[in-house]
């Protein structure tokens, strides 16, 4: 591929150190995946910690799970999956050489869905938890009906707030990056040859989606709803 034509005619967004666009694309994706592997270990430590404490305090964790509203969790899962679809469609629009307004439309839709997720999380769920005195450190009240294991229920909520909080922080950062991408798209920076920032941000956004795919069953579903020993 090292013929004169390739070196003289630089496609926009092509960096000198690469053989061709294909290699640049490959290097960018690989680099992003190396970062995402560190993210797997980052969240992985929390998931392992959750597994240990769940094994130690199964009953209070199931009790805590029952106190969460599964409707919000399921709705948020659907919202986040939809945002992953629109992110993929934004990249697809750039790959297929569609107009910049098409790319901007899907990026905006992704941001709106991301904001909707955070809206449901903060204004409905967390606010509800606060009103119900379920926030450890902020007037948590151990209810008498929880019985002997009630003292360990705050441990579940510590995990709940820390894991969903860290996930929400990733979402906020993602929306920030998407804002920059939308501005870049409006300036016509992307084309069917060069869309690496979109692709790499897509990987990040989908990764955050995957974290939620695991948080949803672990926090909301397991042991949460079937009646156990006379639960509600």
């Amino acid at each position: 591929m090292a013929d004169a034509a390739v070196h003289n005619v630089h496609p926009p967004g092509f960096a000198h150190q690469f053989e061709d666009m294909e290699q640049q694309h490959e290097a960018g994706n690989l680099g992003m995946w190396v970062f995402l592997v560190t993210e797997i270990m980052f969240f992985g430590g929390l998931f392992a910690c959750y597994a240990v404490y769940r094994a130690l305090h199964l009953q209070p964790f199931e009790l805590g799970s029952r106190l969460l509203d599964v409707r919000f969790g399921a709705a948020n899962t659907a919202v986040l999956i939809a945002s992953s679809l629109t992110m993929a469609l934004a990249i697809h629009s750039a790959q297929a050489g569609k107009s910049k307004s098409a790319v901007m439309f899907y990026l905006a839709l992704t941001m709106i869905l991301g904001a909707a997720f955070l809206g449901i999380k903060f204004t409905f769920e967390w606010r509800h938890d606060f009103v119900e005195h379920l926030v450890p450190g902020f007037g948590f009240e151990v209810r008498p009906e929880w019985g002997a294991v009630g003292q360990q229920v705050p441990m579940f909520f510590c995990f709940y707030f820390f894991m969903t909080g860290l996930h929400a922080l990733h979402m906020i950062i993602g929306i920030g990056i998407l804002t920059v991408l939308t501005i870049m798209a409006s300036r016509g920076r992307f084309n069917e040859q060069y869309y690496a920032p979109l692709e790499v941000t897509g990987l990040y956004w989908h990764f955050v989606d995957i974290v939620w795919i695991f948080l949803f069953p672990l926090l909301y579903l397991i042991g949460g709803h079937y009646t156990m020993g006379g639960g509600h």
Binding site: M21, E22, H25, A88, H92, Q95, A96, E192, Q193, E199
Partner: peptide
């Protein structure tokens, strides 16, 4: 075109 283009129908 760089990278593989997944058809929209597959995404749906």
């Amino acid at each position: 075109m760089t990278g593989h283009v997944v058809p929209v129908r597959a995404y749906m």
